[in-house]
């Protein structure tokens, strides 16, 4: 029996040591809460993608709807509760335009409008942007960004042309960021 106890310790030691290190880490810092859908559910129902009940995961028979878009919503189309457009594109657009002050954001219509911003290095010009997220699907044509530029002449701001590639570059940055977010979500 002692031989087998020693064998148990031999196999379990690395796992226990790593777990204790993580436990110590847990005591020092706050980790991310792991959601229930990040653990394997081996029921047959869990293996079917989507639900006949649509976005809802099952039928709500009592209480407050806390589904957050349901099992089919999260990950399937990138939708989340309170969003009428693709969640990855929405978050990626907010991330990409975060250097500009936000004026308004409509998560249902998918419109983000920033306020004017004058870079410290060029105080005589200022920019603002308007982003439109076109739908619930993560597509390369799912986001349109318009950039506006003004220059300061004689104490008044006047419209000025924007290099055409600016909008396209910003859209590409949004798509790259959206792809990163989706990969991170898929890997969880």
């Amino acid at each position: 029996m002692l031989k087998h106890r020693a064998r148990a310790m031999q196999i379990a030691r690395p796992v226990i040591a790593s777990s204790l290190m993580l436990l110590a880490l847990a005591a020092c810092s706050k980790g991310r809460i792991v959601e229930n859908d990040e653990y394997l559910n081996d029921s047959r129902r869990a293996r079917v993608m989507g639900r006949l009940s649509g976005e809802q995961d099952g039928l709500l028979i009592m209480g407050t709807d806390r589904s957050g878009g349901g099992a089919g919503g999260r990950g399937a189309a990138g939708g989340e509760a309170g969003l009428g457009v693709n969640a990855y594109l929405w978050r990626a657009t907010l991330d990409t335009l975060s250097f500009l002050p936000l004026s308004s954001a409509d998560p249902f219509g998918g419109v983000i409008i920033t306020d004017w911003y004058a870079p410290p290095a060029t105080p005589n010009e200022r920019f603002r942007a308007t982003a439109y997220i076109m739908g619930r699907q993560l597509r390369s044509d799912g986001v349109r960004i318009s950039v506006f530029r003004q220059e300061l002449h004689g104490g008044t701001w006047q419209d000025a042309p924007v290099v055409q590639a600016t909008s396209t570059d910003l859209e590409n940055q949004v798509l790259t960021r959206a792809r990163e977010l989706r990969s991170q979500s898929a890997a969880r």
Binding site: S43, R44, R45, V48, R51, Q56, D57, G58, L59, L60, I61, M62, G63, T64, D65, R66, S67
Partner: peptide, 14 residues
């Protein structure tokens, strides 16, 4: 408080 409780019924058939 049970105000935020959500009870769901789900099903599977094959």
């Amino acid at each position: 408080s049970h105000r935020d409780l959500e009870v769901r019924l789900g099903g599977f058939f094959r």
